[in-house]
């Protein structure tokens, strides 16, 4: 599946970087470290002919055919994350203590079409 491709512009489904500060998300009163992170995100068109590249199920190909040939009000398959990685953060608890915690599925690592 495609890796980050901000250097190589494409309209096809791909993974993109996006660095954000927890203060921007109004979470910095609770998440004290790291100050920012890169959740990445998936964006782009899901072309019918490249379904195998994205590891898409048969249903995705069927939906693409329906969209292209039968009824375009049926949505085209969407470009979404298929794999994630966790993120460890330091959080400030209500009792005033600091706790180190790992959150699952915080960073998108691969994209697929569904």
């Amino acid at each position: 599946e495609l890796l980050p491709s901000s250097e190589f512009p494409t309209s096809d489904c791909a993974l993109y970087d996006f660095r954000v500060r927890f203060s921007q998300l109004k979470l910095d009163h609770w998440i004290v470290f790291p100050p920012k992170y890169n959740p990445r995100y998936c964006r782009g068109i899901c072309p019918r002919t490249m379904g195998f590249i994205y590891g898409s199920p048969v249903h995705t190909m069927v939906q693409n055919i329906i969209y292209e040939k039968l009824d375009s009000s049926v949505p085209r398959p969407s470009c979404i994350p298929s794999h994630y990685s966790p993120l460890s953060v330091m959080i400030f608890e209500e009792d005033g203590s600091y706790v180190y915690k790992e959150f699952e599925d915080m960073v998108a690592t691969r994209c697929t079409c569904r």
Binding site: L25, P81, F103, D105, M106, A108
Partner: peptide, 8 residues
């Protein structure tokens, strides 16, 4: 939805 979707 996973955490990533909630953050997004």
């Amino acid at each position: 939805s996973p955490n990533h979707a909630i953050i997004q």
